[in-house]
Nucleic acid binder design. Structure first.
Length: 517
RNA sequence: GGGCCCGUAGUUCAGCUGGUUAGAACGGACCGCUCAUAACGGUUAUGUCGCAGGUUCGAAUCCUGCCGGGCCUACCA
């Protein structure tokens, strides 16, 4: 199998906020894909980072009594820390305030401009000084004096400022053709429909510079203008692979990106503006954008005002890191909005992890420890049931790969857990505790089949639960260099007689503190 | 206003290029087992497949309308 490079990105997160569960969710999905593809022997480049420019950041910095750079240094660090807390394996962490990014952003501007797609005009609209924002005519209401006011109640005035424009309106046809030729460019399907209908509805030229604030990347040759934050931000995906040096080995290897993972709120920027910018600059477009849904706290959108925002560090300290990673990707069909709650979390931890896979490993390994001299048992000839279980363990990678490749994590996990179910049924059917008395050789074979199945499960769950998987594989004395997907299958099966450490439970049950009467 | 998605067992969902008695998981009930983290296995669904029409030999699955939920987007004033 050809092992092609794989480049995937999270959005860069806006530094105006603390990392919450939504940020953790997006990056988690990418982390799982990154680990998955590495195990599939691909060279992976996994990028995340922070978006640090813009008027809001400038304003927040001033409020905090800091200069913008100091302010963003601090907030960006919170996002870096999240990577540690969640065991993310990103290969790079980009900040839009870095010099390499300044170079890239200016370079793409020049490329677009040189190709004739940028022009200078003036931007006009209803502007609220208090809100520092433009409002559409339709958003405005009038107060008793007949003065137009913003939805926030602030007074607005008609202002015009000089601005550079990107001729987005010219890209309507090329974009529609691009979507047509690349049916997998946007996932899931419902988002794709939205984007296509948005573009079909007509595109207006896009204002891509501002003169009203300073905290951003200056427009080349016209430093009174600051680049529009989205053009700035999106370009980070190029910066990280060495652009504008298109001879850079990373650029040659990794661009165009295989996947930009985004939340559903920023699909338009990634699925419309970004490919248009790239086409205008004469650069290749990414292969896929995937927009996932929101995690809802018991049905309510999390928001600061509702005070129901879940913080990743709180979940992790309460339930443990790997269980949280598993839960988030198993419970909610990726791409849909979904509810998360303590109740369903505990249910997943106890039934899927502790009862199903955890107990499977523990019951199997402790029988081996007690009855096989603490070593990999020596199997005899395999029966039909043995082969059936082994082949389900060996083949599930194909399903997992297909599902993960279309970001259907919950489906991939479901397929892996079907093997767990098969294994538990197999234990019951074979009843090795009976065989111990009647047919020890057969018992050894059954226990060997179980150990070998668990080896597969351990390898397969590494992307989702790296630590727990490692513990499982350690308990089978699987070498750290024998844990990739290449090692699935009979060719790398456990060696009979290899000594095994004393087994210990890997997935503890979660017991609620509050004891019901 | 236009568009997209959704409404299926107590719960979360699958099925939806139309075709035997509508499925899974979790929860509940009953039974079995005792290797194991009181875990595992088996059996168990009186579900109006949102409502009402229509097409068809036959619809959860296609069409129309309505009700309810979500999302994208436009505009009048």
């Amino acid at each position: 199998m050809a092992s092609s490079p794989y480049y995937l990105t999270t959005p860069i997160y806006y530094v105006n906020d603390r990392p919450h569960i939504g940020h953790a969710y997006t990056t988690l999905a990418c982390d799982v894909l990154a680990r998955f593809h590495r195990l599939d022997d691909r060279e992976v480049h996994f990028l995340t980072g922070t978006d640090e420019h813009g008027q809001k950041v400038e304003k927040s910095a001033i409020l905090a009594g800091k200069d913008p750079q100091t302010f963003t240094d601090e907030v960006s660090q919170n996002f870096r820390n999240l990577a540690g807390d969640m065991n993310y394996s990103n290969d790079d962490f980009i900040r839009t305030t870095e010099e390499r990014h300044n170079q890239a952003a200016q370079a793409i501007w020049r490329a677009i401009k040189d190709n004739g797609h940028i022009y200078l005009d003036s931007y006009a609209g209803w502007y609220s000084v208090r809100d520092e924002a433009f409002y559409a005519e339709s958003e405005l209401t009038k107060n008793e004096d007949g003065q137009k006011i913003a939805p926030t109640g602030a007074e607005v005035e008609w202002v015009e400022e000089p601005s550079y424009f990107f001729n987005l309106s010219k890209w309507e046809e090329p974009l529609l053709e691009f979507y047509e030729k690349n049916p997998d460019f946007i996932g899931p399907e419902s988002r794709r429909n939205e984007v296509v209908s948005f573009v079909k509805g007509g595109l207006k030229d896009l204002s891509i510079s501002r003169t009203s604030f300073k905290w951003g990347i200056p427009v080349p040759d016209d430093p009174d203008h600051i680049m529009y934050v989205w053009l700035d931000a999106l370009t980070n995906y190029l910066t990280a692979v060495g652009y504008p040096d298109t001879k850079n080995p990373d650029y040659l290897k990794f661009w165009p990106a295989d996947l930009h993972m985004v939340g559903k709120d920023i699909v338009r920027f990634h699925a419309v503006y970004w490919p248009a910018f790239l086409m205008a600059a004469g650069l290749p477009t990414p292969k896929r954008i995937y927009a996932h849904g929101w995690l809802l706290n018991k049905g309510e959108k999390m928001s600061k005002s509702l005070g129901n925002v879940l913080l990743p560090e709180d979940l992790v300290s309460k339930y443990g890191l790997d269980p949280v990673r598993y839960y988030l990707l198993r419970e909610v069909p990726f791409g849909n909005d979904g509810y998360i709650s303590h109740k369903t979390m505990v249910s997943r931890i106890n039934s899927d992890l502790a009862n199903d896979i955890g107990n499977l490993a523990q019951r199997s390994l402790s029988m081996i420890a007690k009855n096989c001299d603490g070593a990999v048992p020596t199997p005899g000839a395999f029966t039909e049931s043995d082969e059936a279980l082994l082949s389900s363990a060996r083949n599930v990678i194909d399903t997992a790969r297909n599902e993960f490749n279309r970001q259907a994590f919950h489906r991939g996990l479901e397929a892996i857990w079907a093997v767990v179910g098969d294994s538990n049924r197999y234990v019951d059917a074979q009843a090795p505790w009976e065989l111990r008395k009647t047919d020890p050789d057969r018992m050894a074979t059954v226990l060997y089949v179980l150990a070998e199945t668990i080896r597969h499960l351990g390898i397969l769950i590494q992307p989702i639960m790296p630590d727990a998987a490692a513990q499982l594989l350690n308990q089978l004395s699987v070498g750290v260099d024998a844990r990739t997907f290449i090692h699935l299958g009979p060719g790398h099966a456990l060696t009979a007689g290899a000594p095994l450490p004393k087994p210990a439970p890997v997935f503890p049950r979660y017991i609620d503190e509050e004891v019901p009467i």
